[in-house]
Simulated scan of single mutants.
Amino acid sequence: MMMKKYILILLILGITLSNSFAQEEAQPVYAFNSGILIDAQTSYIPDAKTLEFVIQHKFGSIENGRSDLWGIYAAGSNVRLALNYVPVKNLQLGAGITKKFMYSDFNAKYKILQQKTSGMPVSLTVFGNLAIDGRNESAFGTGKVVQSKGETAQYAVQFSDRLSYFSQAIVTRKFCEAFTLQAGASYTHYNMVGWDYNHDVVGLHFAGKIKFSPQGSIIFNYDKPLKIDGISELDNWDTHAKENLSFGVEFFTFTHAFQIYMGTAQGILPQDMMMNNQKDWTNKGLAFGFTITRIWMF
């Protein structure tokens, strides 16, 4: 009789432990603590019914050194303020305003796959936005901006001419507690561009972080606009956007993430960086910047 009791206890313990291990093996892996890493989107989407406030700021170039406090007092700063909301699990909707070109943007991000401790080695996320160039119409009437490679008459710009689009697929993997890496591919389109620019740009993106403390990480981001003859409308690549390189540090709490970094692109919206960045990180093109995110749960 005692033997049967011991066998029954062992069976119950075995089933309990196996269920516990199975649950542990299937746990989701969260790679980032913020939806934005420097100025790149990440796979992170907060819980449903969460509101996120985003502040992104870039100073001027450090090329003048201490005369303008390494760009902090320099002209050419840029700032973006945004709100993101998660109405349902894995779907985030957002809107923002940006100083450069007075952009207004509307965006959405959706997580298709979630990395887990077993069975799913990566996360897959898609992101897209639409931006509206909000400058006065006189900014488009100088003859320097054209549509479909034809001259634009003064003050003849239509609302659709102001639109630009960016779409991206992001694959993320947290290799260990200290190291996370993500890679992505993107497509950028502007309805109207300058004569010496393409309407379309395809790009590659890499970003990641290396944790050095429970709340601190070294972070980096690299964006590469590709030169593809098949979609180019140009005779040369003189105005082709330069690659963007950024690196810095991040500190986070349960509701905040603060990132300070140095990077090349003056633009904050991804399509602006992929189309217009002419700063060269090898030639004093770097500038300081910071990103702050704050979330509220309802």
Rank of each mutant, 00 (worst) to 15 (best):
F206Y: 10
K211H: 10
T188N: 12
Y197H: 11
T188A: 07
F175E: 05
Q168R: 09
F175W: 12
V171M: 14
G194I: 06
F212P: 04
T172C: 11
K209S: 08
F212Y: 15
S186I: 00
D196V: 04
T188G: 01
V193S: 01
Y197N: 13
V157C: 06
F166T: 00
E177S: 10
R173K: 14
F159A: 08
L163R: 12
R173Q: 12
S167I: 05
N191Q: 11
Y187W: 10
H189D: 05
I218C: 01
N198I: 02
I210V: 14
F179L: 11
E177W: 10
R173Y: 08
F159M: 10
G203F: 01
R173A: 10
L163K: 09
I218A: 08
Y197V: 01
G194M: 15
Y187T: 00
Y187N: 00
H199D: 13
D200H: 15
K209P: 03
C176K: 14
Q168H: 02
V202F: 13
M192H: 03
R162H: 02
N191Y: 03
V193T: 03
T180W: 06
D200T: 12
G203H: 00
F179Y: 13
C176Y: 14
T180Y: 08
T172F: 08
T172H: 12
G216R: 03
T188H: 04
S186L: 01
S217M: 05
H199G: 08
S164P: 09
S213W: 03
S167Q: 08
V171S: 07
Y187P: 01
T188R: 05
H205L: 15
I218L: 11
M192E: 05
G194N: 10
K209M: 09
S167E: 09
T180E: 06
H199S: 11
P214I: 00
S160E: 15
I210N: 05
Q182S: 12
D196K: 13
A185R: 10
Y197D: 07
N191D: 07
H205Y: 14
G184D: 03
R162N: 03
S167G: 15
N198P: 02
V202K: 01
F206C: 06
F175M: 14
Y165L: 05
T180A: 09
K174F: 02
